[in-house]
Structures are given as C-alpha cells and as structure tokens.
Amino acid sequence: MSAPLIACHECDLLQREVALPRGGVARCARCGAELYRSHPHGMERTLALTAGAIVLFVLANSFPIIGLQLEGQTIQTTLYNTVRTLWDEDMKSVAVLVFVTTIAMPALQLSALAYLLFPLRLGRVPAHFSAVFRVLQTVRPWGMVEVFMLGVLVSLVKLAHLAGIVPGVALWSFAALMLVMAGIGAVFDARGLWARASRLQGAAP
C-alpha cells in the first residue's frame, strides 16, 4: 500500500508522504514550500509553550512596559495605555490596529491553542474543534508581538536623550513572550493535531 497523498498548499502539486527523521522538514518537490515537519513530542511541547506564553502574556499586559524618569517623577505606560492614548488623540484606526495586532490576536491565538490542546492531551476532543482550529489558522498572521518588541526598543533609543529610561516588567515579559511564540510557531504541528483528534473520535464516537 502506498503512502497517503498530500497536496502542496502553495502550488497544488500532489505528492506521497514520506517518513521523516526527527525534526525533519518535508518540502514540496516543485516549489519548495514547507509541507510538514516531524515533531516527536510536538503536541506536548506546544502545550507547555502555550501555558508559558499565557502567563507571559498576562504579565506583559498587566505591568508597565517602560517608564520615563524626569525630575524625580516617573511616567509609565502599559500596552493598554498606549492603545488608549492613541484612541483619545483621535487616532482611532491606528489605536484599533495596535490593539488588534498586539493584544486581541495574540490573546485569541493563545486561547484557541489552549482550548484545542488541553482536552486533546487528556484524551478528549473539545466541542467545536474545527471551528476553533479555523480561528487559530486565520488569526496567526495578524499577531505581531515580535514587531512590537522591536518598536519598543526603537522608542527606547529615541527617548533616551529626553529622560532616564526605566524598563518595566512588561518589557522583559514581552521579550520572553516573543521567543516563546516563535517556539510555538516552530513546534506546532497541525497535522498531528488532526491525526490525534480523528483517532480519538474513531475510538469513542
């Protein structure tokens, strides 16, 4: 029996699945797009990283990112404050853009991941599995934690001549969140997720 067929999502070429070594990546024979990866413990790792990312995300949103020290006073801003200020300055569209890309989309992505992975790990397929999976795939390009982090660093340099800079808890949380989210991107295995879900559904219909 030959291996199952898959189609490249970028050029539609049909090809047979091949077994991969640990950590290997299968690429399309025609256009070179990544088809799938092998992750021996992909789901467990994604789950662990997701749990860590949720903690970091909460920290990053509850504490000030940076503060300015001026004449004994400290002025601080949280992420939410920056969105709020833009909104109050009548830059509503920019405020929405910042809110969506740095708060809403990462929050949605992390909750969708947790919602799908925790029950699966416990041997149960959560309700609305496919709808939540669709949300997860749609949301992914719009979370921009790493770009925001670079933006904060650039503003730091820009403001450094004005006043003393006090890095806040959220700055470190954001830096860590950026790395953990990159980790999730690297180990998340959509095929494995579906494989486990259909195995579970087959076992207990």
């Binding site: 001026l70 709020r84 833009l86 933006g151 004005l162």
Partner: peptide, 24 residues
C-alpha cells in the same frame, strides 16, 4: 510584510509616554 508595522508601534509608545506638558 508584518515588519512594516514597526513605525506604528514606535509612534504609539512614544505618544503614550511623552505626555508631560512641561517638557514636550
């Protein structure tokens, strides 16, 4: 494409911080 958002974030952070009337 996403990296172009950089300047938007720079503006957002600076505007939120520099609201001190004495300085600027």
């Amino acid at each position: 494409g996403r990296w172009s958002m950089l300047d938007i974030y720079v503006v957002a952070v600076i505007v939120a911080l520099v609201q001190l009337k004495a300085l600027a």
